[in-house]
Design a protein around this nucleic acid. Structure first.
Lengths: 342, 342
DNA sequence: CACTGCGACGAAAACGTTTTCGTGTTGAAA
DNA sequence: TTTCAACACGAAAACGTTTTCGTCGCAGTG
């Protein structure tokens, strides 16, 4: 294994000083043409690449952004990552991916690791446990240290930083409105517990849409699923004897469990009951019937987050005072789990 | 924004030298107890954390491993990532995730970025384009530079490095054998093009299993899908008039397309035709009927890869001469897309 | 008193860059 | 011949660590 090629090596080999080599490679006019060409030829021939770590240390920036997500085996988060990667690469940045596994402690640990110089800033979606605890001191600390932070999807209002979210309320309203438009009048909601912000917001949209359409809210038609593991049977139980004609589920898994439950009752989707999900994953596309769903545009969320972060990183520190919140619009993708409008 | 706390700052503040601070924090006996305690108290109070970049430069190792995958919105690859993350974190390593988007150029670019000091080694699954081209010079270069490399899933024999793969041939044989055992005699294969190693190997397993069971191989029953995009219609066409009683597909998407095609012909799965897929993703679990499938254990693949890499990283460079290939066994997960054994 | 030894600390090099500020050599102008 | 740019290059500091090797003062020994 050859010794890694450094400026010092080149300098010794060519019998010039380190500074000369550095300047020559950066095309400084200070260096005579002859020497410059000689050095550049040598460097190209031996495939010299400056050491990133040394550069980071010198420049006090790493050209790297960190993204911390609750889980990675998850369609939505992976689309966000690809969005982040895309614009990060375009702007010459690398991406550090860390997983919190929905654990508060791992989230804190990850942030500490990344904050010690490895990263210029981060993009974060909060762990479930963190939201439950309501402990955000690690975010505040990072911000105070001067680390730019962008929160996406699972955000918390009280933290002063850039945010990228979807209009959960509006998205839910779109879904419920669509159910109403195709004739549903008894619409169930299958949601997650409230401390996950999206659960709360989508529930809000559900209520508002009912109200707007003159339907009174009925708590009996709402299920808040605690544990993902038991969701299937819980939904099965819930839908029994409810006799609804529409179901709005806050993710595709719940939607599919609902369809299964409905089928088991001998009813048909969408003829007897229409079902709408949230998040446009592989399942929604390929299930039979394919799912009508509210699409979250994870890619765009990732792109916007990265853009926001990099913008902040590359701005002079003086003018950074205000924070933006970008709302990425949801779209309603109509497929076969809902009746067609008549 | 406060100036970042460094050894130098602490030294100035406490009126001692930098070396004293460094030694005190690392509990060197060289430093008097009084000074030591004072420094440690100060550091803890102001939450001093050593700068990672400086450490990396000094130690010439980053405690970071890079993983380059063809795509991230993909169940198998995300499970691998989580496996890698898990053991990497346990061993005190960070993970850099990069995407090649199945493009040769992006793969090369990513490797160059990571090779310049950002990373101590990598884990890689080759881009489709790379395998098609057969150009592996970037791998060879990295290895020559002394960068440990672990290849997984989409590997190439000729490169001398550690590898983690599944027994594709055996996995395919298991699947086909199972189809035979439940009574199928006319078994179709839906595979990818041959330059993707898994396509070739699974095809080999298919042939071998047929042979072992005394069925002569019939090329008419084999479809090699070129483009993922058109796969659905291609499979539809292929299955028309073939009148098979079993289908082995090399991934879950093909399997589902097959089921749809079969349903469209008015036949039933599994009563008339049994279908087996490969890769145990969300779709397989939740589709109706749920898919019998060959499980790849992505998590284990990730874990083994990371273990292999870190082992190499932490060994003295003298004894590194031989390379391992770890084969992670596949499992057959029997669900509802195949008839039960009689 | 001179010497040794040790405890407690500091100076400096090193990791690989970039950049500022010399400095020595040339050639031309005065 | 002197003077002064202009040119081409080198020395050194800096980024934040760790570590080796002093060095200083003081106590103990002969």
């Amino acid at each position: 294994m050859k010794p890694k090629l450094t400026l010092k090596n080149i300098a010794k080999e060519l019998d010039v000083s380190i500074s000369t080599v550095s300047k020559a490679l950066r095309d400084s006019p200070e260096i005579g043409e002859e020497t410059r060409e000689k050095i550049k030829a040598f460097a190209k021939h031996y495939n010299y690449k400056p050491n990133n770590i040394a550069l980071s240390l010198k420049n006090r920036k790493t050209k790297t952004i960190g993204i911390i997500i609750p889980e990675i085996v998850h369609h939505f988060f992976t689309t966000v990552i690809s969005g982040v990667e895309k614009v990060a690469n375009e702007m010459g940045y690398n991406v550090f991916v860390c997983l919190s596994d929905n654990s508060f402690d791992k989230e804190v640990l990850n942030m500490e690791m990344l904050a010690n110089g490895s990263t210029d800033g981060f993009i974060l979606s909060l762990a479930k446990e963190t939201m439950q605890k309501g402990d955000y001191h690690h975010l505040v600390e990072a911000i105070n240290q001067g680390m730019p932070l962008v929160l996406f999807d699972r955000v918390v209002e009280s933290i002063a930083c850039d945010k990228v979210i979807i209009d959960d309320v509006a998205g839910a309203k779109k879904a419920v409105q669509h159910l109403f438009d195709i004739g549903c009048r008894k619409i169930a909601l299958i949601s997650t517990v409230d401390y996950v912000s999206v659960g709360k917001l989508r529930t809000k949209g559900y209520k508002e849409s009912l109200e707007e359409n003159g339907i009174t809210y009925n708590g009996d038609l709402v299920l808040k699923v605690e544990e993902m593991e038991d969701s299937e049977t819980e939904i099965q139980e819930f839908l029994k004897e409810k006799d609804v004609d529409g179901v709005f589920a806050v993710n595709e898994h719940f939607a599919i469990s609902a369809i299964k439950a409905i089928n088991d009752q001998g009813k048909k989707v969408p003829e007897d009951v229409s079902v709408i999900g949230f998040t446009d994953g592989e399942l929604s596309k390929r299930f039979i019937p394919s799912l009508t769903t509210v699409s979250q545009h994870g890619m765009r969320i990732g792109e916007e987050s990265a853009r926001l972060l990099i913008e902040k990183l590359e701005r002079t520190p003086t003018e950074e005072d205000y924070y933006k919140t970008i709302i990425v619009e949801t779209g309603l993708v109509i497929r076969n789990s809902t009746k067609s409008k008549k």
